[in-house]
């Protein structure tokens, strides 16, 4: 088993703490079958380092893992990582998690670009992402009131500490997904075909049972000819239902 990156510096009062969903992504990316798929896709003669983008990085544990184990997962010692999060505290925490994980692996020559504060992948250059990862807010719960975002996205004026209300709001952003837990995911799915590299791009997204994953996969397959969506990792079986699953989205030449 590959080691989990350290997140001991992260304050989990306002940044999502790595949980079962994060670990399922780590296990899936490093599974024998996914490593084989990714090696086949990226270790070919092409030498340009793959760009790995994670949206909603939180603590940064998933992106740090992908960067630190790049050789094993992608067949490239050097990948470029780029992250986004709507929570500016998460951006800073994740940048440190990724930096630390890369430095701890001596042969690793991955480059951590930055973790930018933004909405999903709206600021990412189209057609540039080779590997996309998204662990969305998937809980069917009312979305927080974004009107407060500007005030809550940084330290209050002249203060050194966040408030309790602020922390609750920031954590809500990390899990509340609106109707069926799919409101944020649906917005993200719209951006995926645009940001992925048309040739080798592949996306990994996490879904829970309440997200109606079979319907989601079917919708993706109907985007246009060639699009594929398959479950490649799952955990927490309950009465025959997978509680969480990772879906791989990619395009095959039509």
């Amino acid at each position: 088993m590959l080691p989990t990156p350290s997140t001991s510096h992260v304050c989990f009062d306002r940044v999502y703490e790595p949980a079962e969903d994060s670990f399922l992504l780590l296990d899936t990316l490093s599974s024998t079958s996914e490593a084989a798929f990714l090696l086949e896709r990226f270790a070919k003669a092409q030498s340009a380092p793959p760009l790995v983008l994670e949206v909603g990085v939180g603590s940064g544990v998933v992106l740090a893992f992908a960067a630190a184990n790049a050789g094993r997962i992608f067949g490239h010692q050097d990948v470029l990582t780029l992250g986004t999060d709507i929570n500016s505290f998460a951006c800073k925490a994740a940048a440190q998690t990724i930096r630390t994980a890369i430095t701890e692996h001596e042969q690793n020559t991955s480059i951590s670009l930055d973790v930018v504060n933004g909405d999903l992948a709206s600021c990412i250059l189209p057609n540039s992402v080779d590997v996309f990862i998204f662990n969305p807010p998937y809980v069917p719960a009312e979305l927080p009131d974004f009107a407060r975002h500007g005030d809550y996205n940084g330290l209050p004026d002249g203060q050194k500490k966040t408030t309790f209300e602020q922390d609750s709001y920031l954590l809500e952003l990390s899990y509340a997904g609106g109707e069926d837990g799919m409101v944020v995911m649906n917005r993200m799915l719209e951006q995926i075909p645009e940001i992925l590299d048309a040739g080798r791009g592949v996306a990994y997204v996490l879904l829970c049972a309440q997200n109606k994953p079979e319907e989601v996969k079917q919708r993706i397959r109907e985007w246009s000819p060639g699009w594929r969506a398959e479950t490649v990792g799952s955990s927490g079986k309950q009465a025959g239902w997978e509680k969480l699953q990772v879906v791989r989205i990619w395009k095959e030449e039509a």
Binding site: I86, S88, N117, G118, D119, S122, C123
Partner: peptide
């Protein structure tokens, strides 16, 4: 060091 790409319309 952190760019902010949030737009009022996102929120």
């Amino acid at each position: 060091g952190v760019p902010n790409f949030l737009l009022p319309g996102h929120l």
